[in-house]
Structure formats: structure tokens, C-alpha cells
Design a protein around this nucleic acid. Structure first.
Lengths: 129, 129
DNA sequence: GAATTGTTCTACACTTCATAGAACAAAATT
DNA sequence: AATTTTGTTCTATGAAGTGTAGAACAATTC
């Protein structure tokens, strides 16, 4: 599982880590039940501060993706059903609406969006890069 | 076109304005060719600083949604075709992938995502709230 | 001509981000 | 049993971002 940090990016480092870990899990590089590296080891590996990795882990825990076991480690959570009305589902829904609204405003059509969705699913599910 | 600012939100005010304007355009409350209020008038209306609205407008211009005519006003751009490979298209694509990856990790299924997409489209196109 | 426009500048307070170092107690390893 | 590693917590610092505030400018609009 390779993670690439771009220090010059306008995206915060802890968010880059968070997003790439999520994409790694989605691609199957990391599986449910797997443990993430310790914050110290991961930080040394990435060349960033320990606290930055720690922030990313807590972000992932807040989003229901990992569970941090005190004094032990961070474990990737099992997939839930994502029941409708749950905070996580509503958050996803809201984020999705924001992106789609912008896509529509920029002139993207319904079929184009459906095709885009299909391509992304294909990419995430079968393209392990 | 009513915009509601939540000062306590963890989302920056200028982003709240940006997102709600985009959603307003997607819903048809604002149409292509329409002018946005002057930064001073809008700021007074929202109860925020002029510079905050100005930042939102420049954010919208950077995203290709409005065009700021110096000394005149901000006009909503016409929809382009959003040709593949354009910076705007790639940005949308990237944002979409980020959200979808998280949805998958949380256990959302393909059909659920397609249904979600359809619901959002329906909401944006016909529900003018 | 007067008012309004977006732009630009300085200024201040506050928050966030990233780094750094230290110390702690619990867990894992040897 | 002793050592190492673990996440947590604390202080601290510098840089960047956010939001507000006021002023001035030139161009547009009325």
C-alpha cells in the first residue's frame, strides 16, 4: 500500500493520507480487519510528523472507517449496511449532492454522470494499480 | 434565492456561500446569464464581510461557474459541454471518486449508489424548495 | 456629478495545520 | 521480568488560512 504525499498541494497532508487510505481500502489493498501501521512507523515512512498521521486516523475513526484500540493499534472496520438516515449515510449523501450540483452547473448530463459513476466503480473494483 | 449561513459550522463561510450558490444554479433559481448581487450588497444581506463574499465569487470563477466583469458584476456562465480531459472535468471526476470510494468502504452497494444518484438528480431538477 | 462597482492595500484576531519534543501508562515483544 | 512499542496528552512554535475592518482607487452606472 503506497501512499504519495504532495507537500505543495492545497489539500492538507492529513487529508491526503485519509483519502488515500480510503481509496486503498476501496481498491482492496487493505481489507476489513487489517491493522494500519502505528502512527510512529507510518509517520517515519511518509516523512511527516507523528501528530499528522494521528489526526488522519482520528478522522477515519470519526467517519466510521477504522477503530482505534487504545495502546494497541488501528483496525479497519467491517462494512456495515450503511442504513438510511444514519449520520454516515447522510454525510455521504450531502457530499454527493454538492459534487453533482457542480457537475450539472458545468453542463454535465445525466447519462454522462451515470457513465462516470460506472467508470469509477470499475476503476475502484478491478484496477488495483 | 435564499442563502443560509451557519457561523458555527466547520465549513468556511465563503465555502457555504459558494456551495449554496452552485446548488441554487443547479436548481434553476439562478439562470445562466443572470447577475449575482454586488459583493457589498450581498455581504450586507448575509451579514458577513464584503471580502468573504468576494472570496466566494473568485472561487466560483476559478471553477468556471461565473465570470467576474471588472467594475461591473458577476455573471453566471453558460453551460459548456464539459469536454473530457478539461481541468474542470478532471476536478469533478476526482471529487466524485473520493466520495464514492468512501461510500463503498462504508458498505454502500452499486445499486444503492445508482439509486442515490437518481434521487439527487430528481431533487435538484424538480424540487425547487 | 454622484453613487456604486470590483480591486487592492494594510491591519488585527482567531483558527487550523504541521512540526517538535517530552512524558505517561498500557500493551506487546523479547 | 525487562525492554520496547503503543496511543495519548501536554506545551511550544511557525506558517497558513479565515473573517472582519477600514480606506483608497479608478471605472462603471445612474
Amino acid at each position: 500500500m503506497i501512499i504519495q504525499i504532495e507537500p505543495q498541494s492545497d489539500v492538507a497532508i492529513y487529508k491526503q493520507i485519509t483519502n488515500q487510505l480510503i481509496e486503498g481500502i476501496a481498491r482492496g489493498h487493505l481489507r476489513h480487519g487489517d491493522s494500519l501501521p502505528s502512527v510512529r512507523a507510518f509517520a517515519a515512512d511518509l516523512g511527516v510528523n507523528m501528530h499528522t498521521v494521528n489526526k488522519s486516523y482520528h478522522e477515519l475513526e470519526k467517519r466510521g472507517i477504522i477503530k482505534i484500540v487504545p495502546k494497541s493499534g488501528a483496525v479497519i472496520e467491517a462494512q456495515t449496511k450503511l442504513l438510511q438516515g444514519s449520520p454516515h449515510a447522510e454525510r455521504i449523501q450531502h457530499e454527493l449532492k454538492t459534487v453533482i450540483a457542480e457537475a450539472l452547473v458545468l453542463g454535465m448530463k445525466t447519462e454522462q454522470l451515470e457513465q462516470e459513476l460506472a467508470m469509477i466503480m470499475e476503476d475502484l473494483k478491478h484496477n488495483k494499480q
